[in-house]
Amino acid sequence: MNWLRTSSFVSISTVLAFTAVIWYAAAVYLNSAVLIDKYERHKVEWDFSKLVDDSWSMDRPIMPAPHQIIFDLNKSIFKQKISSKRSLIYHGWVTISSTMVGFAMGGILGILLAVGIVHVPTLNKSVLPWIIASQTIPILAIAPMIIVGLGAIGVTGLLPKAIISAYLCFFPIAIGMVKGLRSPDPIHLDLMKTYNASKSQNFWKLRWPASTPFLFASFKVSIAISLVGAIVGELPAGARAGLGARLLTGSYYGQTIQIWSALIVASVLAATLVFLMTLLEKGVQKRMGVRL
């Protein structure tokens, strides 16, 4: 029976099952106050089992039970046409597309900046401290301003959200790439020198390949925050589509189940994106001859 205690699958599912039990209990506990109040106003007879039943099937619960969320997910993903405004696939797609555009923009910007910092000493001294300092600034606070500001000059839709995502994800990429491009040992740089390698050969044949592990580590971090940026970008100025808009309308109309299912979809998206990035990393490493 030793494998039972050492398998991480068993551990993870135990923790998950435990979470589900707590969740159901919390749903009863949190919803009971409203329900008991309602029973007493309508003078309905109630006992504990009725309370439990009702608290797991409320229309607008304070805390929805997991199966309610799953039903709602099923309803809004599989039972709707993809183009419908009620389909979470449609909203997820809106968010994902600005996430990807923002990630591409931020990635290119971050890499270019890192290349500049590594090769130009003045840039290194002057810009790098600002990049590090800007990580301490709550960038998301600027989100509404970018949306409204760009909206005022007629740029709306995908681009402003993508800019927020790009802004969020270029920092980790720039920092990671600077580290990565500087990671080759002096011994390797010396070897390149004995080959009389030019600056560009040095870059493409040594620095760039050496930086790929760092690049992918930063990619994984930044694609996750790129999604956060896209979601937060949908909050202000009343975006009509996207997971952030679902969160906002859910919170306006007290539709807790809708909030939770948007949240679940966002989490699944984030996990999928990071997972895809890991797959890509493994593929690239394999092609580069890394033994896994």
């Binding site: 996750a224 956060v228 997971l243 969160l247 807790t256 909030i259 949240l263 989490s267 996990a271």
Partner: peptide
């Protein structure tokens, strides 16, 4: 890695 900011409406 999850967009935890999304719990904000629930907490409110």
């Amino acid at each position: 890695a999850l967009p935890i900011v999304g719990v904000a409406p629930i907490m409110v």
